[in-house]
Amino acid sequence: MNKTKKKRKAFVQQPDCVACSCCVKVCPLGAIRVIAGIMAQVDMAKCVGCGKCAKECPASVIEIREVGT
């Protein structure tokens, strides 16, 4: 029986993001940046899905989802 842990990644509901940068400040891997002062964007290659950004987001627009294998 092969039990592979699914990877988790952060996803920003971009139209609702207020670009406050709270997520940027708490991300331990620098996987989030605010683009043009408008919205946050996650670098999927760096994100490990720890959830710190989602907990810190005052607008509650970041969610952690399981992705692939």
Rank of each mutant, 00 (worst) to 15 (best):
A45T: 14
C22W: 02
P15K: 14
I38T: 08
A19G: 05
M1R: 10
L29Y: 11
A19I: 08
K7S: 14
C47S: 13
V12D: 03
S21C: 06
K3S: 12
V26Q: 00
K7H: 11
C23P: 02
K9N: 13
N2I: 06
A36K: 06
F11E: 15
K5C: 14
V18A: 05
K46M: 09
T4G: 11
A31P: 01
I38G: 05
D16S: 13
V12M: 08
V34E: 05
S21R: 01
V24D: 00
T4Q: 13
A31L: 06
P15V: 11
C17H: 01
C17A: 10
Q41V: 09
G37T: 07
A40F: 03
C20A: 04
Q13T: 11
C17T: 05
M39Y: 09
M1V: 06
V34F: 06
Q14K: 09
A45M: 12
T4C: 08
C20R: 01
R33H: 08
D16H: 13
V34Q: 01
R8P: 02
V26F: 04
I32Q: 01
P15A: 15
M39A: 14
P28Q: 07
P15Q: 15
M1K: 12
G37E: 07
P28H: 08
K25L: 04
Q13W: 15
Q13H: 13
S21M: 03
V12Y: 05
Q41W: 08
V18F: 03
Q14H: 10
C17V: 07
K3M: 08
V34M: 08
K25T: 01
C20N: 02
M1A: 08
C27V: 00
R33W: 05
C22G: 04
V42N: 03
L29N: 10
M1S: 11
C20F: 00
R8H: 10
V12F: 05
M44L: 15
I35D: 07
G37S: 15
V18I: 12
K7F: 13
K46V: 06
I32K: 09
A45I: 06
L29D: 10
V24H: 02
C27E: 02
K3W: 12
S21K: 04
V34T: 08
S21Y: 00
A45H: 11
C27Y: 01
I35M: 11
K25R: 08
A36N: 06
C22H: 00
V18H: 03
C20Q: 03
Q13P: 03
M1P: 04
A40T: 05
C22T: 02
Q14P: 04
V24W: 00
V26K: 02
I32M: 04
D43C: 10
A19F: 04
Q41G: 03
C17Y: 06
Q41P: 03
A45N: 13
P15E: 15
I38C: 08
K9D: 10
M39K: 14
A10N: 06
Q14V: 10
C47D: 13
R33P: 01
V42A: 04
K5M: 15
A19E: 03
Q41N: 13
M39F: 07
V18T: 05
K5Y: 11
G37H: 09
P28R: 03
I35L: 11
A45D: 11
C47L: 14
G30M: 05
K9S: 12
K25C: 07
M39T: 09
K25Y: 02
C22Y: 02
M1I: 09
A19Y: 02
R33K: 15
